[in-house]
């Protein structure tokens, strides 16, 4: 059981590091939001659950923290992305399509 927890924690820690690498390398805000929230969500989830597996009396509390992170991280990423779009941040150079001008709220700005 202990070694299973070590493996799960190791996978989580690796994904946390990959989130940092993606945040550093991607070209514009939206891609950075993708890397910085997706990889760290799974990474934090796996790390915290792994600690709960290594120490079975802590499992309930760690499950609560992990579920809380899983519920709130998409909301904060969504609000940051919308703030970036409404404050006029440009897309990166290689972008294919931008259909947001079809929206009535966005077209007047």
């Amino acid at each position: 059981m202990y070694y299973l927890g070590v493996v799960v924690t190791g996978v989580g820690v690796l994904f946390l590091c990959l989130g940092g690498i993606g945040l550093f390398r991607f070209p514009d805000v939206y891609n950075r939001v993708q890397a910085g929230t997706k990889c760290t969500t799974l990474g934090a989830f796996a790390t915290i659950i792994g600690v709960g597996i290594m120490e079975p009396t802590w499992f309930w509390k760690t499950l609560i923290i992990a579920l809380f992170i899983l519920a709130t991280n998409p909301i904060s990423s969504h609000s940051l992305g919308r703030a970036a779009y409404k404050s006029g941040t440009e897309l990166a150079e290689g972008s294919v399509v931008d259909m947001a001008s079809e929206f009535e709220e966005y077209s007047e700005e």
């Binding site: 990959l18 891609n31 890397a35 294919v96 259909m99 947001a100």
Partner: peptide, 19 residues
């Protein structure tokens, strides 16, 4: 998927905004 795109040396992304 995202981790593969992050560690790939050429960063193979093709981004856009759709409805």
């Amino acid at each position: 998927d995202v981790a593969y795109r992050a560690v790939h040396p050429k960063i193979p992304i093709n981004p856009g905004i759709v409805i």
